[in-house]
Design a binder for these strands. Structure first.
Lengths: 142, 142
DNA sequence: CCAATGTTTAGAATGATTCTTATTACTAGT
DNA sequence: ACTAGTAATAAGAATCATTCTAAACATTGG
């Protein structure tokens, strides 16, 4: 189990490495993402952060989420043109978008799969990232 | 080579199969997509259709594109939250998004790859589609 | 021809996100 | 501690792609 202080320290570390400051807002946003990993939107995060920090603004939520993405602590996920969703899972994984419920599920990928997929690229294409999105019906409880 | 009339007939057929009408607007939009396969946005398509049909409206372009997507003649592609792009390539393929130029390249996939990727899903997930997006640097000329 | 239905048009409305500006909070150097 | 410089936040305005609305038009089957 990763303790709360561990993740706070990971955040502090990453921010420092990027020459950024560790603010209470960033800590709250990150902790909100870690607490409930259901791929919330910025509005969702805003709503969850407010009880802990009533004066926080939506603009700040967007700013902090963007910062966390820059620091590679969080992944931004998009389905079609729906609102961006945020995911603190750092393991290599794909996303499964349940078309019935709108829910998003992380699908952990076996080691080597992403490289294997990358190997279909012609030699002169240099992929920095690969994203895999499934769409369909997920089991009722997962 | 697929002739122009062939594709018009494919369109007419698909529309009929879906109980939809074959309109001049739909034909123009589809032909615009076939003529230059550079993953245009709705605005791009609008601009390209106008010379051929000056009275066409942007709303109609959106409507027609949506119709073509429903008929499985065209794929809608999204990168982050940028405008949706449209692609008449029906072969199984991934997309490579060149971060420097913004250009999109089709990457044809070897047969079986999509099934292989699907096989990483737990048994109770039923994927209707799989989408693969690469991001990085593409060769200067492709 | 007529009614029913599908399609197009133009413009208004929406929704997520970004931008702007002022204010506040740190940080380093003295 | 004091101060200049920089970073971050807050609040609201602005933006952009897209969708909606309502009216006009077109097509089909009876």
């Amino acid at each position: 189990m990763i303790s709360n202080t561990d993740s706070s320290e990971a955040l502090a570390q990453r921010l420092q490495d990027s020459g950024l400051r560790n603010t209470p807002q960033r800590e709250v946003i990150y902790s909100v993402l870690l607490k409930k990993r259901d791929h919330p939107t910025a509005e969702d995060v805003f709503a969850r952060a407010k009880p802990e920090m009533p004066m926080i603004s939506l603009a700040t939520v967007y700013n902090c989420l963007e910062t966390l993405v820059q620091c590679d602590l969080v992944r931004a996920v998009n389905f079609e043109r729906g609102p961006t969703r945020y995911c603190p899972n750092l393991r290599p994984h794909a996303h499964f978008h349940d078309e019935a419920t709108g829910a998003t599920h992380d699908i952990d990928l076996p080691p080597g799969l992403l490289d294997q997929v990358k190997s279909v690229l012609p030699a002169d294409f240099d992929a920095k990232s690969v994203e895999i999105i499934f769409r369909g019906k997920a089991p009722a409880k997962s």
